[in-house]
Design a protein around this nucleic acid. Structure first.
Lengths: 352, 352
DNA sequence: TAGTTTCCCGGAAACGTTTCCAGGAGATGT
DNA sequence: ACATCTCCTGGAAACGTTTCCGGGAAACTA
């Protein structure tokens, strides 16, 4: 917190050369060996470090990428952010975290604010989308890569995953392991993830091979453990018509799944013996939980990586057609669905 | 991704007034009512939004604050980041996430890079510290607030917590609930948190009222669940001299604690009946775990809030003496230490 | 040796904004 | 009616950097 910093002009004076040469010697090309040495020495003496705001203004480039989600505390988004940072940092880009708010309108406002030019691009994972948001993204003054929905046909670069298909994988797994009375624990259906999960479950349930005898659905107020506990209680409290109790719960989310396990325990049911539970997202939380959680991985880190790589391509001016890249869902079977755990691996397996 | 954006000059031309007046009309004071209206209209027609890089250059202010830690995926740091963002965003500051690397040297390098002026300040939580880092922080060209160690006497603004005292609270709690053979599961002792925990345990163990009959220590390779499992196995495998097995484990961290619970289960021990386990940090993970984890809260969000508020004060030029503010540790008793859970509250208690 | 190319260097402009400064117009006071 | 003051406006400079452009010297070719 000391003396004001040295500027390029001062370095130039110190080295006794022009400003232009100084700049060239430090960054660009076209400087003689002697010049480079001389300027370097002067810069070192003065402890010069280039000012990025001046640089940004001239270059029209900030070397910053925004990452915007509704809830930066959500483990899934944390994983994405980490992945994005991993890819971007080595290329000299900084990551700015932002929150979208819950509504399409607030998200749209955020996208519009990109006009201020504080970042070179934005990786966005909107919780809810509408036409206005899509329009805003298309008109954004900097590249926007969307994680969550395939908007390639809309002319928007996006990284998607087949979470609907993932729900299908979970359902099939439960049927294959003998479950017949299946509850579907979803979050708010007006969100992008909620809508996709619902679609996935409906598709699975209308499959010819769908052998379930009983199906019930409950909606949690949001994608949290607490909401999951409450909704799962309704699901597991007992069949309203006196039918047999559910023996499996497909949760839209690891947090909801853990809520379901908790509710089951509170009702005196054991997991997986009495009721099997599947989650989605394959979070650390689910991996270390006891019983460890069977979950559909949606490759949060892969998606983050992919989005970041697309972003790098875009900010380097390599435009090309907007495209949707997709990472496949992958069921990871753990203790919460199979009575004799398939834990053939070493202690602490799946734990980082 | 369309036409290049409108500049203030274009707004001025459109409004038919000078550049200076345009700027004043939009931000500053000293513009007539008519002028403001006229300029506003022109700006609206052109869809003008001010360019922050130009603004930053002139104002010598970026409205950005860096948040730097070793591992941005760590739940504790995520909580801090969220808290910091909550405080700063309403004041118009953006948060830039950065990683310090594992060593004091890499952290020092990061602090030095602040000379480039891409942020107005940095909230830093270094994993390891040395004299060079302390010097670099003191000489940093922008305010730095350190979370983790009290460096107020070194002339550095910092937010600390008494994690050593927190370990003491955990130990006392275990003694009070009848435990007598206590294991201490620490992380790398050369880290700031590791060192503080060790100090705390040593202090507790040398207290006159320390009634334990047996004490053992194990060091995990890092602060992760996997490392915790491995180290806890050593701790719980049985006393080398054939003495009675430990009946309590004080872990330096929630992740290590969960590792310990897992190891206990693998050894056929039940928690908390056979062995009680305490964690530290009071993370979401520990709250939803089964058994829910008795943990010492170090107020990650409080610390984040405090650091952000100090930062706001600093960037607003209100210097004052560097100070250390401290938030107290707070033991939260849950199922992992008391056989008959004190869960008097509603289902899903402590779960967000 | 003269002409041509290559290589470096310095001057100056530009990126978009805020603010200092001077001046003009109108209002107020005597 | 004149001086003084207040209020508003426009010109111009400044923040720190990169890069275009022109020119001079050196190196090459014929």
């Amino acid at each position: 917190m000391t003396s004001s910093r040295a500027t390029l002009i001062q370095v130039a004076e110190r080295a006794g050369v022009s400003l232009a040469s100084t700049s060239r010697a430090l960054h660009g090309s076209g400087a003689s060996e002697a010049m480079v040495e001389r300027v370097r020495a002067a810069a070192a003496e003065l402890g010069y470090s280039p000012d990025v705001t001046g640089r940004s203004l001239r270059l029209r480039k900030t070397f910053q990428i925004a990452f915007a989600v509704a809830d930066i505390g959500n483990p899934v988004y944390v994983e994405m952010m980490t992945a994005i940072h991993e890819v971007l940092a080595p290329h000299g880009y900084r990551v700015v975290v932002m929150t979208t708010g819950d509504t399409p309108a607030s998200t749209t406002e955020l996208v519009r604010s990109l006009g201020s030019g504080f970042v070179d691009g934005m990786v966005l994972s909107p919780l809810r989308t509408d036409d206005g948001l899509v329009r805003a993204i298309k008109q954004a003054p900097v590249p926007v890569v969307v994680i969550g929905r395939s908007l390639g046909d809309q002319g928007i670069d996006s990284v998607s995953t087949d979470s609907a298909g993932g729900i299908g994988q979970a359902v099939r797994h439960l049927l294959e392991t003998g479950r017949r009375r299946i509850g579907f624990l979803n979050g708010p259906p007006d969100t992008t993830p909620g809508e996709a999960r619902r679609r996935g479950f409906d598709a699975a349930a209308s499959d010819p091979g769908f052998a379930a005898e009983r199906v019930e659905v409950a909606l949690a107020e949001d994608f949290t453990v607490a909401a999951g506990v409450a909704a799962a209680h309704r699901l597991l409290a007992g069949a309203p018509d006196g039918g047999a109790r559910l023996d499996a719960v497909v949760a839209a989310n690891d947090l909801l799944a853990i809520g379901a396990i908790r509710a089951a325990r509170e009702l005196g049911l054991s997991v997986p013996e009495d009721v099997a539970v599947t989650g989605m997202d394959d979070t650390e939380l689910g991996r270390v939980f006891q019983p460890s959680l069977t979950s559909v991985s949606l490759g949060s880190d892969e998606r983050g990586h992919a989005a970041a790589r697309i972003m790098l391509r875009l900010v380097d001016g390599d435009a090309g057609e907007p495209q949707t890249t997709s990472v496949g869902p992958r069921l990871v079977v753990r203790e919460s669905t199979v009575p004799r755990p398939a834990r053939a691996s070493a202690p602490g397996e799946g734990v980082r």
